[in-house]
Amino acid sequence: MPNIIVCVKHSYDVQQLRYDKTSRKFLLAEAPKKMSDMDRRAVEEALRIKEKHGGKVIALTVGNQDSIDTIRQAYAMGVDEGYAVIDKDFESYDTNNVALILAQAIRKIGNFDLVLFGSASTDGYSRQVPPKVAMYLGLPFINFVREIRLEGNYVLATSDYEDGLYTYRVKLPALIAVTLDINEPRTPTPAAILRASRKPVTQWTLKDLGVGALKKYFEVLDSYMPETPRKHVIFDASSDDKIPDAVQKLIDALRREGVI
């Protein structure tokens, strides 16, 4: 009966992120957040493993106070326990910091067979955290996984690489990062969401984990919406009689541009 820890990130919902048209900076304060897309699939996969093999699913996050929302979302999906490492300086952390904290929290939770991650977070998309945690914990690591099967003390996992699908077998405990393709995550029922709001979330500080001052490895100087001036010339072909004209205008434009 496997115990599974799933690491989840409370990410900016990048589809809904807006920017200031003059400064071209992102309006982060008003941006909605949600559980990162691949992490949601990691939670789903853990729940499916539990439904088949029993055991326990634990969700773990590190973030600001608001990241507790993501643990609540995981509870609503059906996880058994939720942990959040809360630090107000989270926004300034780099991936080395996050990985170190997660590794410490995983050690403190202890007694796990499998650690699951999403291969990349929706907002950061650095893909750095899962391999780093694997190194810190000295766990065998299988990345970009789109299929997982448990067989006794072993896990079989299929990695999606550019050149092919590789199925690996490794003894537990192991760390696996999953892609978007692994499953279609469940949508929690309103009743489950309500129940989740009452479940206790274990909150830790860095001090609780014995993590001291964090070294700075990397910094973001600034982020902005790049200016890529486009011409935005739209031809209407929404009714049949307009199609010939629209097509002709497009061809003329592309010839003027010298691209065809």
Binding site: K231, I234, A237, D240, K242, I243, A246, V247, Q248
Partner: peptide, 22 residues
């Protein structure tokens, strides 16, 4: 359409055959 230089608003099943013909 926010990212284009040129766009056609229309049904691809009608526009693309015409584009190919021309």
């Amino acid at each position: 359409f926010e990212y284009v230089d040129y766009g056609i608003v229309g049904d691809l099943y009608k526009v693309v055959p015409k584009l190919i013909d021309e």
